[in-house]
């Protein structure tokens, strides 16, 4: 594996997103949402203004869990199938580059763009809020940003995998949307459904482990369990074994969610 080849592809993907203002647009969306939530998140309760970092992060988590998977899937779904459909893939592959290097370069470039806009967008808000935050709160906010980047990277990895398997862009976009529905909307309902239908006979013990099968849930747990005040707001804490609720362990699960789809994509692309 030649690093320079990966860097060339990654550099092009990254600068393409900078030049076409994709990074700027996404960062602005994140900034706007984060600011609105921080200052107007409690408007329903009749107050405005920044309340606490815990409540802000909890609200941001509920938003980001929908938004980032969607953005990541839209960013990556045509990474390979797009090149193939436009007809530029053969020329790329005629260069002294392996398919694995091309795939990894594409992924890293796109992940760089997504991470950059996430950190820039939420980081800006962090700076604005920093005057009102103590060190502990800043640490939690940083953890939220990091887990958001990981969430994006996991769904981007799934998107790149789709882009290798799909035969054309239209199908790839359909599969991306279906994947978003499944992980973000359907998965939790399905788990709950199984629990209710079997009256808790089946799945109760396994439930916390089942949640690890969804990177969006891993993200949610990561953020909720790092916040003492918020933990009690969610019923999850009563079923979630403390042995699993370790940030580094959940972080590793997230890394597995990044590595596994990429590995499958690479295997498929080489065939």
């Amino acid at each position: 594996m030649e690093f320079s080849q990966i860097a060339t592809i990654a550099g092009k993907e990254f600068w393409d997103r900078i030049r076409n203002r994709w990074v700027l647009a996404v960062a602005l969306v994140f900034t706007a949402f984060a600011l609105s939530i921080a200052y107007f998140g409690a408007a329903q309760q009749g107050t405005v203004g920044f309340r606490s970092i815990e409540v802000t992060i909890a609200s941001l988590v509920s938003l980001v869990i929908y938004l980032i998977p969607l953005i990541a899937l839209l960013l990556g779904f045509d990474a390979i199938v797009g090149e193939r459909e436009r007809g530029s893939l053969d020329l790329l592959l005629s260069m002294p580059i392996t398919r694995g290097e091309l795939l990894l370069g594409k992924y890293l470039g796109l992940a760089g763009a997504l991470a950059f806009s996430t950190i820039a967008g939420f980081g800006l808000v962090g700076i604005v809020l920093s005057a009102q935050l103590d060190l502990n709160a800043l640490f939690h906010y940083f953890g939220f940003m990091l887990s958001s980047v990981l969430l994006g990277c996991a769904f981007l990895s799934l998107a790149v995998m789709l882009s290798v398997f799909a035969s054309d862009r239209t199908r790839a976009s359909g599969m991306a949307i279906a994947m978003w529905f499944f992980f973000v909307l359907v998965f939790d309902l399905l788990l709950l459904g199984v629990l209710v239908v079997t009256a808790g006979q089946w799945g109760g013990e396994a439930l916390p482990y089942m949640l690890l099968l969804n990177p969006a849930d891993v993200f949610r747990i990561l953020n909720i369990f790092s916040l003492e005040d918020v933990r009690t707001l969610y019923g999850l804490s009563t079923v979630f074994p403390p042995s699993l609720a370790r940030p580094w362990l959940l972080g590793l699960v997230m890394l597995a969610w990044i590595a596994a789809p990429l590995a499958i994509a690479s295997w498929r692309f080489r065939r």
């Binding site: 080849q5 060339t8 393409d16 076409n20």
Partner: peptide, 25 residues
């Protein structure tokens, strides 16, 4: 290699296109 019906990257200029492929080569 010059493929049939070559497709290049619309957002790059001529020099940038060559630079990209030169790096890969």
């Amino acid at each position: 290699y010059l493929p049939e019906n070559i497709v290049l990257y619309d957002n790059l200029n001529g020099l940038e296109t060559l630079q990209f492929f030169a790096r890969l080569k």
